[in-house]
Design a binder for these strands. Structure first.
Lengths: 204, 204
DNA sequence: ACAGCGATACTACAGCTGTAGAAGGAAGGG
DNA sequence: CCCTTCCTTCTACAGCTGTAGTATCGCTGT
């Protein structure tokens, strides 16, 4: 994929994050990317192609993000520890809420879209990386059924993310990037992990 | 609100569920509702009004749903029991995945939309009923901080719902309405409750 | 220098969408 | 019986969107 393609796809992600799928038009992307009108239309001849390009880019960037955050082997000395894992999850969540906010919003929008466009779904699975990591994580923490527990963990974490992005009031939502946010997310992540792993040990 | 308005709003909900926010046009609603072209445009003069009508209807119907499912005092004899509460949550989830699927999808789409339209957010809070119930629930189960725990519970449950509607593969997803589905959801709900309440008792 | 070529930029146009206003028609009061 | 009033249906139209075709530019190798 060329340089221009990525630039446009990134602009498209921002457009979706700020104006929703409805706002995603060739011209809006041109405007956002600061390129002459018609460029997006030239690179992505149809709207379907544009959406697919956007999703593909999303998958690329977020997969890299996830890989960069080695949750388990982070400072690989010592045995896996619930608290440390929760801190890792919290850091990732904080990133998705702060710097990665646009991408998170775009991702949720695309997931919804994927409901009636199965081909998007497979791209948005991110090569199974999130779930693989979740499995790895719960397995390391002693899960008796990593497949199921990993699945649950991902769903809880995504729920947390969605809820803070678009759901509840701002009651329990300190600004991302701050220590308070990290502490809050750490607590919530711990709750998620605890619930998921409850059938192994009665938790701390 | 008149009879016609509700009919149109319901059609709009279905349109959003099947074609996304992007597919929500006056004419698409006309078609879906089986009314002559122009009707929707007459009842909801602008698109903004249409979306607001849709959201208001969503709030009405779903609030009724929630109120109908008295999770706590359901067969109010006996003390509140984690397992029984989980069963109640599972029943609600199953309803949202099955009969209420369209409404759930529309709700998520609107929540995303509400990110840049705050006035929708307040309507979609459903008069705080879901969170109030969650608070009530965790309080009855002995939470030391019902506000926070209720918040977490709602986010976990919504995550579960989103994930099964639009997220993961069909691995752990039996058809709604079946006993398997209820059992699966019961298990997941129990995990959510356990995690949220972990700091009170080390759970069953 | 220049022909060829790929990448980029521009333009055209058909169809869709949002919106408003006019026309038609049933219900109720006098 | 007719007039008024409200509800419903129809029509018009401006602007936006998706798409494809044409023009322009800059580089490459010869």
């Amino acid at each position: 994929m060329s340089d221009r393609t990525d630039l446009l796809a990134d602009a498209a992600i921002h457009v979706v994050a700020t104006h929703g799928m409805r706002g995603l038009t060739h011209r809006a992307v041109d405007a956002r990317a600061g390129v002459p009108q018609g460029s997006t239309s030239a690179y992505f001849r149809t709207r379907k192609a544009l959406v697919e390009g956007l999703v593909r880019r999303l998958a690329d960037v977020e997969t890299a993000d996830i890989d960069a955050t080695r949750l388990t082997s982070q400072t690989s000395d010592g045995p896996p520890d619930l608290d440390r894992v929760a801190a890792g999850v919290a850091a990732l969540l904080d990133h998705w809420l702060g710097a990665g906010r646009d991408r998170s919003l775009a991702r949720f929008a695309c997931l919804l879209e994927a409901t009636h466009h199965p081909e998007l779904r497979t791209i948005l699975a991110y090569g199974d990386r999130p779930r693989a990591q979740a499995r790895e994580l719960v397995a390391a923490l002693g899960s008796t059924d990593p497949e199921r527990d990993g699945h649950d963990l991902v769903s809880f974490v995504d729920g947390l993310l969605f809820y803070r992005l678009a759901g509840g009031g701002a009651a329990h939502a300190p600004a991302p990037g701050t220590p308070e946010s990290l502490a809050e997310l750490h607590r919530a992540a711990l709750a998620a992990l605890t619930g998921v792993l409850a059938r192994r040990s009665p938790a701390r």
